[in-house]
Nucleic acid binder design. Structure first.
Lengths: 338, 338
DNA sequence: CTGAAAGCGCTTACAG
DNA sequence: CTGAAAGCGCTTACAG
């Protein structure tokens, strides 16, 4: 194991100078720097990050907590975060947080409690009071993408506006019997992503003057394809009270709903319009109308926010507060009702 | 920042004893241990992993390199690896390796070259000679799941046998005009996952005595849903030479192919049988016949192999060599040809 | 069973 | 611009 002492000896300088030449700032004569670098290359020297961390207090490592990796939105965000972090020379330590459970508290109480990361990015997680406190005590920047709970900076789309827009699209086509396939926990946690989307749905329906008995057709399900499929089967099962349009809280749910309609022999869009949220890679193939968002970009933006907090100190983040971009993309799964 | 010296002082022992009581082995009187633990709890002491790593040489951290996170198989493996690693008290550092590119060599030459991880798990990556050498020089265990290249241990399903089984299923139903939707690079890299599946296809077709002009209908595409969709459109486009069955190298490709058939008005399975590989979460919903594998379990097994290498030293791994389990699951997308 | 001392591999004031 | 020294927070022989 080549250590910095070896480099110094080979270059004929002190360890301090070698350190300054290789990594640190500080003044080093150009000629000296070259000699040190040549020596380092010759013996294949690579600094030990642990030793450096110990003295600088910076680990060049950020922790990412994420509830799913196998859901399109989360996977895309994770890829975006990873790329941006690697580009900045940072490692990514992954904590996959399942629902509730003892594993979850272990991540907060043990893994994140150590001094191994410089910052934490929480993706779509609803932090409870205890978790918030446990992270705040660490005095490391905590950046959130979506989700809820107290953090240093949160980037987010305007989920209420997204829900409203999706619903208004259906309303403007002439639908009045619109069901909302909401994410699990939407009613219980109004501050969650799914809660905001539900709120937008309700706002739009109320503003359109839809009678109360048709305004509250809401079914909660997992925000993935099987969730949308079984949820839609339930929603579409009673032929009498069947809605003419469904606003699904995610594209995966929407695709599941389309599949359910096919299974029940209900034509999309002739008999049922379907709109989702996300801009999933599969949306185009299913000709799905959706409100797109850009998770890869969001991940990169979260990393930028972390870097600003890490380097810039206390100054306010650029464009903080402004919601992240979204866009209505109309395809073939929505049309006017018959 | 509470350090071990604070704990020691509070408990009235030396730092050495505090260290032994908290983490290390070594003899400590039961009564002393209790006192130290109480002191640690009182001030919320948590050891600095960096400092410990510096002296022990162990980081309690494993690096995972993976080409995609947003593909079902890879996402499942990653979740399995993550859970197992966390259970063992290890951190997971994620390196998402895109195709070729400069980012890829940066991961090998910079990130993995440092002493930050105790071991590396490579998931479905074909390591070239240079990469193999660069990892071997680190003298850290390198465990692979699928993929190719020189490693300390490789867990893998028998992809050739899987390709053969899937093809034989179609042959036994009576199909003779079978196309293979292969993964990109199957022909060029025979040692890759997609290469082995192609080989199995060819073996089965040859053994069945299928005439050569029908034996080599192979189209390579990305192993995801859009890849399968566009690939299948191409394959099914010429009505004259249209195959009666497709063996897709992954379930996502198979689902894309089903979608393409629907689009072309080709009935599945009446006019086209489709079989995939994976046991994707969506397979059941699409009633897809497939050869299942169990990526979550595979991830956990890879972690077990790493732990064995880390703790056990040189002894051979349990059940090394035996391929990981797979299973043919027949659903509604395959049937006898008309 | 316990403590004093050395040392892991770096970086950073502090002098010069 | 450069070097000697101290120190980051631990663990591990080595004595006792």
């Amino acid at each position: 194991m080549a250590a910095i002492g070896d480099v110094a000896r080979l270059a004929g300088v002190s360890k301090a100078t070698a350190s300054r030449a290789l990594s640190g700032g500080g003044y080093v004569a150009e000629e000296t720097r070259r000699r040190v670098e040549a020596a380092a290359n010759e013996i294949g020297y690579i600094a030990s990050p642990d030793a450096a961390s110990l003295v600088t207090g910076r680990t060049k490592n950020v922790g990412v907590i994420i509830p799913f990796v196998n859901r399109w939105f989360f996977g895309e965000v994770l890829e975006g975060v990873e790329r941006a972090l690697l580009g900045a020379g940072y490692d990514l330590t992954l904590y996959n947080l399942p629902e509730g459970g003892p594993e979850r508290s272990r991540v907060f109480d043990f893994f994140l409690a150590r001094k191994r990361v410089d910052a934490v990015i929480a993706i779509g997680v609803d932090l409870d009071e205890g978790e918030t406190i446990s992270l705040a005590r660490r005095e490391k920047p905590l950046v959130a993408l979506g989700g809820s709970g107290r953090v240093d900076a949160r980037l987010s789309i305007d989920d209420r506006a997204v829900g409203q827009l999706a619903t208004e699209h259906l309303l403007h086509l002439g639908h009045t019997r619109i069901a909302h396939l909401a994410g699990l926990g939407a009613a219980e946690r109004p501050e969650s992503v799914q809660g905001h989307r539900l709120e937008g749905f309700r706002d739009a329906m109320a503003a359109a003057g839809i009678p109360a008995e048709h305004r509250n057709v809401v079914l909660e399900a997992e925000m993935d394809l099987p969730g949308g499929y079984t949820g839609a089967l339930q929603l579409l099962g009673h032929p009498g009270a069947r809605p003419t349009a469904v606003f699904a809280a995610s594209d995966e749910m929407a695709i599941g709903a389309i599949r359910a309609a096919e299974r029940l022999g209900i034509g999309v869009p002739e008999e049922l319009s379907v709109i989702g949220v996300d801009g999933h890679a599969y949306a185009e193939m299913f000709e799905l109308t959706t409100v797109e968002q850009y998770p890869g970009e969001q991940g990169r933006a979260a990393v930028e926010a972390v870097m600003a907090l890490l380097l810039g100190g206390e100054e306010p983040l650029p464009d903080s507060g402004a919601p992240l971009p979204t866009r209505l993309v109309v395809r073939a799964t929505t049309s006017a009702p018959r």
